[in-house]
C-alpha cells in the first residue's frame, strides 16, 4: 500500500466551475470520492459540485428525541397521579385536554434539543476523508482537499495546472 499525502487547492468563490472541474479531474486520476472533501464559506449543494449525496442522521436523532419527550410527558401526565392519587369529585383522574399541552411542549423540547445534540455528536464523531483547513475559506475561497498517493502527485498537479489553483502548503487542520 502506497503512502498518501493530503493536498489542498483553493479557488476564489467566483471560480466555482474550476472547483467542480477539479473534483471531476481528481476522479479521472483515480482518486476516490471518499478521498476528496470540499470546504467552503457558503453551502453548495452536492449537485452544484458534482459530489455524491451527503447524508446525516440528524433527522433520525431528532425523531428519537421527540419520542423520548413524548414518553416523559406521558409518564408525567398519566404516571405521576398514581404515585399520590388525589381524586376530586367531578374531575377526571386523567384529563386529556389539559395533558395535551404538556405532551406537546415536552415532545417539541425533545425534538429540538436532540436535533442540536445530533449536530454536536456528529461534529465530534471521527469522520472519514482528508482533514485540512485554510482560513482563506472563511474569506470566500473554496478548498478542495484530497488524499493522493505520493507517486501520483506530479501527475495530478500537471492535470490541474490549467485550472490555475492555489496550492496550500501543509493543509493539515489547525483551527
Amino acid at each position: 500500500m502506497s503512502a498518501k499525502s493530503v493536498q489542498m487547492v483553493l479557488y476564489p468563490d467566483t471560480h466555482l466551475d474550476q472547483a467542480a472541474e477539479t473534483i471531476h479531474r481528481l476522479r479521472q486520476h483515480g482518486i476516490d470520492d471518499r478521498d476528496i472533501s470540499v470546504i467552503s464559506g457558503v453551502p453548495y449543494s452536492d449537485k452544484i459540485l458534482g459530489r455524491p449525496m451527503s447524508w446525516t442522521r440528524i433527522g433520525l436523532i431528532g425523531l428519537a428525541g421527540a419520542v423520548v419527550g413524548f414518553a416523559i410527558a406521558t409518564s408525567l401526565n398519566f404516571g405521576t397521579p398514581y404515585l399520590y392519587p388525589i381524586r376530586v369529585g367531578g374531575q377526571p383522574f386523567f384529563p386529556i385536554p389539559t395533558s395535551i399541552v404538556v405532551t406537546f411542549e415536552l415532545t417539541m423540547l425533545g425534538l429540538l434539543i436532540s436535533t442540536f445534540l445530533g449536530v454536536f455528536i456528529e461534529t465530534i464523531t471521527p469522520s472519514y476523508g482528508p482533514k485540512g483547513y485554510s482560513p482563506k475559506v472563511s474569506d470566500g475561497h473554496i478548498g478542495v482537499l484530497f488524499s493522493c498517493p505520493t507517486e501520483k502527485m506530479d501527475e495530478v498537479k500537471k492535470g490541474l495546472e490549467d485550472l490555475k489553483p492555489e496550492w496550500v502548503k501543509n493543509p493539515e487542520a489547525k483551527l
Binding site: 472533501s37 464559506g41 453551502p43
Partner: peptide
Amino acid sequence: LNWRGTEAEWHRLRKAINIFAFA
C-alpha cells in the same frame, strides 16, 4: 465547534436549521 465548512458540516447544519425553522 471546530467548524471548517466541509460538505458534511454544511449538510447537517442546513438539516438542523430546517428542522428548527419548521418546529
